[in-house]
Design a protein around this nucleic acid. Structure first.
Lengths: 201, 201, 201, 201
DNA sequence: CATGAATGAGGGTTCATTCAT
DNA sequence: AATGAATGAACCCTCATTCAT
């Protein structure tokens, strides 16, 4: 399990999950507000509803919190993307539906996406690569959907790039909101981007 | 002048420019390596070739260094983009040339782009907005090129989005290199992205 | 409570009192020796018997220490003055006794008085005024004693000035000791000053 | 000469005097505002109208400035007191005139007196004693006036104490202005204090 | 398991002083 | 004699982490 990368003094696995969920929730809201480096472990403990001592019963270092947080965000995105994918049968139209869902998802998780973009670099190499691996998996999912839905229109290579493009177009709604969300409504943004993609597909 | 947002004790304007250039150079190389927060002012001073006391003769706070650095990166990108733009007469082909140049430019300034993506959020609101304004200007340049080169193919709205897409496609070559640069050579990446855009244009 | 003007991370109120008492004791001995500005927080921590980190668990800024110190000195003087006052019934003689006690008290707290004279100005305006208010209260006590003991010999105005004179005559034994204590023994000083006052009273 | 206690690189004695006068003027206005420790040498240089480099041509250390300043204040007080004394022939009345003049003088030099009270302690032992010696001389002057004017009413001892009392009553108009000047006009203060003294004399 | 007081390395910043020009 | 850029020791304060209770 991915969470086993973080060591805890506590044995009770259920409790670990419960406490870490509290922790992640607190951390996300703080990281949104002030970023990882400007957030103190004391603040995270407080936002999580327990003491600094207790916090350290469930992690080893502050970086562990960042890892758990990034991982949780990743999982959330992935799960919801997989749900969207599962609902559709392969067809050009369903691909568009998936893309649309993904854009809505990104709108929903804007701040979380921002955290990923800005803080992953603070993870140690090994942990960072673990997170990036998951992101790669996400691209893989999108790529597979593309290849399944429009096998004749794209090469493998093109599908890979397309998957990346689509995902980054979702992300950019979050990380470039200071420019995009001033000029486009979410619906316009989705319509226009899908329009652009349509000509390609 | 943009640099006047940062106060210096030293009066000699030329010297200020010289020292700040040293500073920016040192800071960029350190920020690349360990990010803004993990870099100490002492390290920056050393990398710049002078003492910590001297460093603080040319800035007021550590954040000033980040601002100067981001601003310098921005200027560099902008200048080179403007050069590329200036070389071409308006035509569909020349638009492609500009895009290509931009992608090469992004390849060249990968690490600098990464700094922008990851550290701008550490600036104070006002300063951050100053930097973002410049980024908006950059989009404006690209948008204008599009509208000049292919006025009949795109609406104003589409041009705006296209400009953003192109720029972010350039950026992603930098910030997603862990995935893209494993699967594509720069030339392939450019070719494929431009191919995709061709169908749109 | 006056001490609540200073914020602490620690919750245990008794511990706060204990640690701050250690702190004040250490600070006084250092301020006596080298003054507020030449004393470092590390020295205060050391003199208090704990680490710099612990020091800052009980205060927010170095100035807080000065405030706590001044306030503690003030309280000490006041308490002992009130004790002296409480022991006497109103009469001309008892007024003299109170004055005498006050002079002995000043001899006892010479160095502390010096700290007040020299460092209060380093407090922020608001805090300084809080301390000065307490000093005004002290004058009020003395004034009341005068008015009670010799109501027929002095107007309200004269009592006010007299109270101030007496208090400053006490203080000057401390802050002019380099001249007074070379020429007078404490007993002589008290005798002579009271003699002078006698003619007035 | 007292000023020779401070070493200068510059030879021209007149220039030294001129520059140091500028310096003292600047320093006094800054010390009034923020005290010795919170004033930087750069600020003093600027307020004096020359560069930090020039400042250090005329002194050796920051403390030298404090010394020169205290000494200048002392001299000013002394000179004006001596003038007042010189104008009178010995008599009980002229003593009162001198005292009155002294009080007016203290009102005039309030802030300067405050500087003396709060900053002299920052001088090195030897220098401090030099300043205190001058203050002792001032007491001597007052004492002599008393003994000359009312030789039959006071013993030598009483005269000494009286001189100190008068001087401190003058000073307290400055250092306790936060309480006295709220309740008394200068004229009332002088009248009342002299009234008190009258009964003694 | 939970708590929170204690720790001290380390960070940003200041400023008296020097010295080459 | 005047200048002001350069220096670095030293200061205040923070905060991740530990550990006794």
């Amino acid at each position: 399990m991915s969470k086993d990368r973080v060591v805890s003094n506590v044995k009770d696995q259920e409790l670990i999950k419960k406490r870490r969920d509290q922790m992640i929730k607190g951390a996300i809201s703080l990281f949104k507000e002030k970023g990882f480096h400007r957030t103190t472990t004391r603040e995270i403990a407080k936002a999580s509803g327990f003491s600094i001592g207790t916090l350290y019963e469930y992690i080893r270092t502050k970086e562990d919190i960042l890892f758990l947080t990034c991982d949780a965000i990743n999982d959330q995105v992935r799960e919801r993307l997989e749900n969207a994918v599962a609902m559709e049968n392969p067809s050009r139209d369903s691909l568009l539906k998936v893309i649309e869902s993904f854009f809505y998802l990104m709108d929903d998780l804007q701040e979380e996406i921002l955290i990923l973009y800005q803080e992953v670099k603070s993870l140690q190499k090994e942990t960072r690569q673990y997170i990036l691996k998951k992101e790669r998996d996400m691209v893989g999912i999108m790529e597979k959907v593309i290849l399944k839905c429009i096998p004749d229109q794209v090469t493998k290579e093109e599908a890979t790039l397309l998957a990346n493009n689509i995902i980054v177009q979702g992300h950019m709604w979050a990380f470039r909101r200071w420019i995009l969300q001033k000029q486009f409504s979410l619906e316009d943004y989705i319509r226009l981007q899908i329009n652009g993609l349509l000509r390609v597909l």
